[in-house]
Design a protein around this nucleic acid. Structure first.
Lengths: 267, 267
DNA sequence: AAAAATATTGCAAAAAACTGCAAAAAATAG
DNA sequence: CTATTTTTTGCAGTTTTTTGCAATATTTTT
């Protein structure tokens, strides 16, 4: 405890004694880049100056484009609006990578069951025009994509259309899925995690996904790596129930090792 | 010693609970993009703020176009973006006229069965946004239109998708149609004529149309006047089996008189 | 049609930002 | 080294922003 006391006093002296404006601002920029955010109150306490001074510093640094000033403090440029669109495109690219890996699994003559979601639609777009296979789905955007393909057959799963997810949901859809035995099932997933398995946030969607997994010979899950190690309220299935996991990452990425060790083929 | 305890607690609070507004909003956007939907209640618990604050955040983000605010939470844009073909086939004003006459027949709470074809799609576009009804169809373009309507429910008839006609066709579709009793059935027709009744040129489509007509309380046929008094190889049904005929012409047009005399209500 | 959940609105308290100003510190010139 | 100018800083009063609460609508569900 004494050590802490000494340490603390040392810190105080360091910060309090000599801090020129330049020095102080450099410190602030450093903190922002380190923690992605700073609070005026914290800085004011850390360096021993009034909040007014901190505010003036933040204003200047903001003018210089070194950080983003917000009510109560400042954020790193990483939060900038500029980052958002590019991040979105980035995510779109990732989905393309996933889509291509997934499309490569489909061979001529296969029966393929697919769910909904943007990743699945992307996969539909990535299919080779020469592919001849049968796709079964209740996802309207996917149907539209498949419809434009020259050689694949499309079986529509009917039922009540969910406007939010744009797929058909209900007992009818589930029954129909139970009556088929596709070779492959592609599922865009919302959350996956070693402990909870695959999870989602919509009861009806979960019912359908469970039926899809049960009917299929092999289940392939598609997800961007951001969704790895996250979970949601409702369990879809255990990890052992899926066969293949596809992300935009290289299969040997450390993030994926736990899943590989759980017996899932990671692509 | 006590001072340190207080100091640490202070720090923890700063980092754990206090979240700058912008930061919080960035987190919300991230969550929405990741999981396609968020609930106000969940967010309020996750970040430790009142639901009012979350709602205000969602409103602002919604204004900025970063997500779609809905009752209880918000949805990702990506999901709603997927389908907006918006290819305005300002084909014929005639079809618009027909569409409007047809749309006027549909009252709140009705169950409506519709076929495929451009006229039906045009009708879907002419529906009042306030209309609350249930539409049943196997036509993909129609489904896409209905999906964009705020208040109608959509039941999709599943089966094998015919790429030429963009509707589902087959025994399954027919069976499903047999199991329902819609108030109205709208049929875009290919040929009508006093002697042969309603005729078409695709065997499977005819099977389906027959099932639709048999199931429905009332059958409404839509056609541009060009198709009047023409016929095709396969009979769909007799004139007496349909109830209402809609064309772009005024009801008292001489061309339509034979049909009126045959007992059909001409609009 | 009633009950539950969610939204909206107005309001008040707290936090933060801004304003003008004066004192202190630093820089500059003589 | 001193006097003057400039910059920086803190302070007090005022304004704006943010947030939560309560009362009231509205929507969704049963």
């Amino acid at each position: 405890m004494q050590f802490f006391a000494i340490f603390f006093v040392y810190l105080m002296q360091l910060t309090a004694s000599l801090m020129l404006k330049r020095e102080r601002q450099a410190y602030i920029v450093h903190q922002v880049n380190l923690h992605n955010k700073v609070l005026s109150a914290t800085l004011s306490a850390e360096i021993d100056v009034s909040e007014d001074t901190i505010r003036r510093d933040l204003s200047e640094l903001s003018e210089e484009g070194k950080l983003i000033k917000v009510h109560g403090g400042a954020l790193s440029l990483a939060f900038s609006d500029i980052t958002y669109p590019s991040k979105k495109i980035y995510s779109q690219d990732n989905k393309k990578i996933i889509a291509q890996k997934a499309a490569a699994l489909i061979k001529d003559g296969m029966f393929v069951l697919t769910g909904g979601g943007t990743t699945i639609v992307e996969m539909a777009r990535s299919l080779s025009p020469a592919l001849t296979a049968t796709f079964i789905t209740g996802s309207v955007p996917a149907i539209v994509e498949y419809m434009h393909h020259p050689n694949i057959e499309v079986i529509v799963i009917g039922d009540k259309l969910s406007k939010s997810s744009k797929i058909t949901l209900g007992a009818d859809a589930i029954n129909r899925i139970k009556s088929i035995k596709p070779d492959l099932c592609f599922l865009g997933i919302n959350a996956i995690d070693i402990k909870h398995g695959i999870t989602d946030n919509d009861w009806d969607v979960v019912q359908l996904k469970q039926a899809m997994i049960n009917s299929s010979q092999k289940t392939v899950c598609l997800t961007i790596s951001e969704k790895l190690n996250s979970f949601q309220p409702i369990e879809v299935c255990k990890l052992k129930d899926i066969d293949i996991l596809i992300t935009e990452l290289a299969p040997d990425n450390p993030l994926l090792q736990p899943y590989a060790e759980a017996g899932i083929q990671v692509i």
